[in-house]
């Protein structure tokens, strides 16, 4: 029991896990990109322009589409990392037994889980970056400060990848992920200021959003895209890093408990 909670011990071979996933992704890249990117893009453009026209001045001087673009960068990062860590991760862990095969080579489960978390973050980087690029092309990024969004996407992806891996470690089947999506991801998306400012929520709820990783990502990305240095940026980064690190540690311990019986 205590062994499951021992500190991680990684080897550089975790890179091979990442490269394996990359090779699979390359084979399915086109279909995967369309699936991953079209959805957030459509919401952003549809609501941004359609809804935005009805409320021209409500967003502190910026347009609604610019406001929504920043939120969409974060939410699509979250979605992409979560899906990869849960559905694809579960396939590799439980259905195809890919992790088992890897652990018969000189890699430990610690290497596998780290490789998977970084892989989920890498995939989400692509999703977040795609939205960022479209936003830039539409003139929704005010200055080169927006480049700082890239590391924010990465750490956000790492946080949600780790959280997703926790759910994967606990999941008896694919159906289980629906609970996490409905009970955690969707409410988080609605409460974290993706679609509307979080301070519009009842005060108690607004206070609680400070606990959600997505709201910290949004609080970083939105000012960066509108050309400002985010207030309390170090705090936001620390919260995201804490979710990534503690989330990873939990995911690792739970996966060890599941697989290293």
């Amino acid at each position: 029991m205590t062994r499951h909670w021992s500190l991680p011990s990684f080897s550089l071979r975790c890179l091979h896990v990442w490269r394996r996933n990359l090779l699979v992704w390359k084979k399915l890249a086109l279909a995967s990109m369309i699936g991953n990117l079209a959805d957030p893009m459509l919401y952003m453009l549809g609501f941004g322009y359609g809804l935005g026209r009805m409320m021209p001045d409500a967003f502190g001087g910026t347009t609604y589409i610019a406001f929504l673009a920043a939120g969409t960068v974060c939410s699509s990062t979250m979605m992409s990392a979560s899906f990869e860590a849960m559905y694809s991760g579960f396939s590799r862990m439980h259905v195809q037994k890919t992790w088992e095969a890897i652990m018969n080579a000189p890699l430990d489960l610690d290497d596998v889980v780290l490789g998977e978390a970084v892989w989920a973050a890498s995939k989400s980087l692509l999703s977040g970056l795609a939205v960022l690029l479209v936003a830039a092309a539409l003139g929704l990024c005010a200055s080169s400060l927006a480049l700082w969004v890239i590391p924010v996407i990465l750490i956000t992806g790492l946080a949600f990848g780790s959280l997703g891996l926790i759910v994967t470690a606990l999941s008896p089947s694919y159906d289980f992920f629906v609970y996490y999506m409905t009970l955690a991801i969707t409410p988080m998306m609605l409460m974290s200021g993706v679609f509307f400012p979080a301070d519009q929520l009842p005060p108690a709820v607004h206070l609680a959003t400070a606990l959600l990783p997505l709201s910290h990502a949004v609080d970083l990305v939105r000012p960066l895209m509108s050309g400002q240095v985010p207030a309390q940026w170090a705090l936001h980064l620390c919260v995201l890093a804490a979710y990534a690190i503690i989330g990873f540690y939990l995911a690792l311990a739970l996966t060890r408990r599941r697989l290293l019986k």
């Binding site: 699979v24 399915l28 088992e100 095969a101 018969n104 080579a105 000189p106």
Partner: peptide, 17 residues
């Protein structure tokens, strides 16, 4: 394990490769 080979009970080859 670097010097071991393992044939597991269930095949766990990579179906995408």
């Amino acid at each position: 394990r670097a010097r071991i080979g393992v044939v597991p009970q269930m095949d766990n080859l990579d179906p995408d490769f």
